[in-house]
Amino acid sequence: MTKGVEVSRRGRVLEIKMNRPKVNAINIEMSQALGAAFAELRDDPELWVGIITAEGDRIFSAGWDLKALNSGEMQLDNWWETADYGEGGFAGLTENWKLNKPVIAALNGLVIGGGFELALSCDLLIAAEHVEFGLPEMPLGIVPDAGALQRLPRRIPYNIAMEMLLMGRRMTAKEAARYGLVNKVVRKDDLMTVARAWADQIAGSAPLAMQSVKEVLRAIECRPLEHAFAEMRGDQLETYRQMLKSEDSAEGVAAFVEKRAPNFKGR
């Protein structure tokens, strides 16, 4: 374990677990450790999918380490410039624009503040049934500017997002599922079983194809439809272009025609 972050490999899946008692508050060192873990996922061709979770069943993360902020260890003004939070911005994922491999959030407890922003940065969210989401920054005189302001109103109805942002009210896992904020709600004892099953299913796909999905969606987000097509068909999306002429694309088609399982190799 490095700076409250445990990293383990399970086949083509990298599992990242936060374990910094009592609430997995993320300080600079922990953010750097998370960034290093996600960089490992990004850079290792043998890793195709990531899972982020936390120890126990009480809390996923309370987000920013307010004690470190209060002590002066961390700064508020221009915080993204005054300290090195590691690759990928705060928590290693909130501004990680180069990680095309999918990340599953296995949410084991309260998802609060910056912990919520980390979860919002993931591609698939699985929540234990007792999980609640909250943004308690307003009474502190600050705002959740590491992803919640930017992402939440795009994921759920604007007025519901504003209720969470302005009033700090919590949202249950069941309500989050109704809005599509989380993909699935499960018993807490089943959380990692389901997350690993999803990761294994994704890892059975051609990696360049699944990485192209993230690359393309990031490039075309909020673009008019005609411009989205033009963006995708330009020459800027490297992974998508590699996928079109890859051995795996030919293998997938051949396997379908020959009625056999494909043998994808990531090239």
Rank of each mutant, 00 (worst) to 15 (best):
M1Y: 08
T2Y: 05
K3G: 03
V5F: 11
E6N: 14
V7Y: 01
S8Q: 14
R9A: 03
R10P: 02
R10Q: 15
G11V: 12
R12K: 15
E15L: 12
K17H: 03
N19T: 11
R20P: 11
P21R: 11
A25L: 02
N27K: 13
E29W: 09
M30C: 01
Q32M: 05
A33T: 08
A33N: 08
L34G: 05
G35H: 07
F38T: 07
F38H: 06
A39Y: 05
A39Q: 11
E46F: 01
G50K: 06
I51M: 06
I52G: 01
I52P: 04
A54S: 15
A54F: 08
A54D: 03
D57Y: 13
R58Q: 15
I59N: 00
F60G: 02
S61W: 06
G63H: 06
D65P: 15
A68D: 14
L69R: 10
N70K: 15
M74K: 04
D77R: 13
N78K: 14
W79S: 09
W80S: 13
A83L: 08
D84V: 01
A91Q: 02
L93E: 04
L93N: 04
T94Q: 01
T94P: 10
E95N: 12
K98T: 15
K101W: 06
K101H: 11
P102G: 03
V103E: 08
A105S: 09
G109F: 02
V111I: 12
I112P: 02
G115R: 05
L120A: 00
L120N: 00
L124S: 10
I126S: 01
I126R: 00
I126K: 00
H130D: 15
E132F: 11
F133M: 03
G134D: 09
L135C: 12
L135R: 03
P136R: 00
E137C: 09
M138E: 15
M138L: 13
G141V: 07
I142F: 13
I142S: 10
P144F: 09
P144Q: 06
D145C: 01
D145W: 03
D145M: 03
A146Q: 10
Q150G: 02
L152M: 05
L152R: 03
P153R: 08
R154Q: 14
I156Q: 04
Y158W: 09
N159Y: 12
N159C: 01
N159P: 12
A161M: 05
M162A: 12
M164R: 04
G168H: 09
E175K: 13
A176S: 08
L181Q: 12
L181V: 14
L181A: 13
K184R: 15
V186G: 15
R187F: 14
D190P: 02
V194F: 09
R196Y: 13
R196F: 13
A197W: 10
A197G: 09
A203E: 10
A206L: 01
L208E: 13
A209E: 10
K214I: 07
V216N: 08
A219K: 02
I220W: 08
I220F: 07
E221T: 12
C222A: 15
R223P: 01
P224T: 06
P224R: 07
A228C: 03
A230V: 02
R233S: 08
R233N: 14
D235Q: 11
L237T: 07
E238F: 07
R241V: 03
Q242I: 01
M243K: 04
L244H: 10
A250C: 07
E251N: 01
E251F: 01
G252A: 11
A255Q: 00
V257P: 00
V257G: 00
E258I: 00
K259M: 10
A261Y: 07
